[in-house]
């Protein structure tokens, strides 16, 4: 790869059923680049959890994925309610998702911990009432 590649995705927040489409597309894009399956899986899971979070909590948002020679950086931006207590949100098992979301298989309080688990570094920049920006980096 001579030039950095950026993939942009709009995440529709209105429909839970379609959540994850961006992650599926990203996975296809990364496969075409010949990136190792192990890395692709980590990027895909991190992106997917992030996408689900944006749909559940923030009525959607957008994702940019930058691929360089050394790493893949996922940036997720939403205009949702923001995260009041990030340390609390990072605890496994903590969730503010509704029972309805739990009945759909999410809201176990594993989303953010999973995103951190699968990335080499993760930063959360959140302002209550304005939105959240999450940056995850996975080294190649």
């Amino acid at each position: 790869m001579n030039e950095d590649l950026i993939f942009h995705f709009d995440v529709d927040g209105s429909d839970f059923t379609s959540a994850g489409q961006a992650s599926v597309q990203l996975k296809k894009n990364l496969r075409q680049l010949g990136i190792s399956p192990d890395i692709i899986r980590r990027v895909s899971i991190a992106m997917y959890e992030g996408e689900i979070n944006m749909v559940i909590h923030a009525n959607g948002g957008e994702a940019d994925v930058a691929v360089t020679e050394t790493d893949i950086t996922i940036t997720l931006r939403d205009k949702g309610p923001g995260i009041k207590d990030i340390d609390l949100a990072m605890q496994e098992g903590f969730s503010t998702a509704t029972d309805n979301i739990r009945s759909l298989g999410f809201g176990a309080g594993m989303g953010l911990p999973n995103m951190k688990r699968y990335s080499d570094s993760m930063e959360i920049d959140s302002v209550v009432g304005e939105g959240t920006v999450i940056t995850m980096k996975i080294n190649l």
């Binding site: 839970f16 059923t17 379609s18 959540a19 994850g20 992650s23 599926v24 899986r41 899971i45 997917y48 959890e49 689900i52 739990r102 759909l104 298989g105 999410f106 809201g107 176990a108 309080g109 594993m110 989303g111 911990p113 999973n114 688990r117």
Partner: peptide, 26 residues
């Protein structure tokens, strides 16, 4: 719970679930 599934990496594995929606496939 799909997030619990996503927490553990396995190779060539099978998922058993009683949940039925598109997110199971994804």
């Amino acid at each position: 719970m799909m997030s619990d599934v996503l927490a553990y990496v396995k190779d060539q594995s099978v998922l058993l679930t009683g949940l039925v929606n598109s997110q199971v496939i994804r």
